[in-house]
């Protein structure tokens, strides 16, 4: 886990994230009255850095906050948004709760499985997409059926819109921007939506 070797020839800083981002880490910990509270924030950082939380991240976080690895694992595994295994670059999470489910969500899941060629829970071979379904309502029922990609919203995702989203991401579109456009996140489009379900 030692920090060996700084910037490599290609200009990328290859040091572990916790070395590169020490200042962020310190700031995060300082926000709380007790350092332990920074645990979830550090897990988020690890996940932002490599897409999932690796064993060495658990070890680092435990060490840094003076906790046992078991404690960190116990906390991490409680929350469904942390991944402990590698996932695709885009993690698609379809809302599987009632409103989305009744308003086309079930069809959407089948459509995505078909288009991506994977089952729910799997990652496409090119490593681009992981398809998941959540039991939690994602608080977008007025835009049912809804899904999130890396926690960015997409509403009223009918099969055609789903295809456009996938294509745009394959073409390298910016996820947050895409969410604001195709995703129909602008108010009026979602709340007080005129479109019928």
């Amino acid at each position: 886990m030692a920090a060996i070797g700084a910037a490599a020839a290609d200009g990328r800083d290859r040091r572990p994230w916790w070395v590169r981002r020490e200042a962020d880490i310190e700031r995060l910990i300082a926000r709380y009255p007790k350092p332990k509270s920074a645990l979830m924030g550090l897990l988020w950082m690890a996940q932002e850095e490599r897409g999932y939380v690796a064993d060495e991240d658990v070890a680092f976080i435990a060490e840094r906050l003076g906790l046992s690895r078991g404690y960190v694992e116990s906390t991490c595994s409680f929350y469904s948004l942390y991944h402990r295994q590698p996932v695709g670059r885009y993690v698609i999470v379809v809302c599987g709760n009632i409103v989305c489910g009744l308003c086309g969500g079930a069809d959407l899941i089948r459509h995505l499985e078909e288009r991506l060629g994977v089952r729910v829970g799997e990652t496409t071979k090119d490593g681009l997409f992981t398809l998941l379904v959540t039991n939690e309502c994602v608080a977008a029922c007025d835009g049912a059926p809804a899904l999130q990609i890396n926690e960015e919203y997409f509403h009223k995702v009918n099969p055609q819109r789903a295809d456009r989203i996938l294509q745009a991401l394959r073409d390298g579109a910016d996820l947050a921007e895409l969410s604001e456009t195709i995703g129909l996140t602008a108010p009026g489009a979602v709340w007080e939506a005129g479109e019928s379900a």
Partner: peptide, 13 residues
């Protein structure tokens, strides 16, 4: 009120 389901204009009111 967050209205959703089988109505014409779901949304926050």
């Amino acid at each position: 009120f967050s209205v959703s389901g089988m109505v014409r204009r779901p949304g926050n009111y």
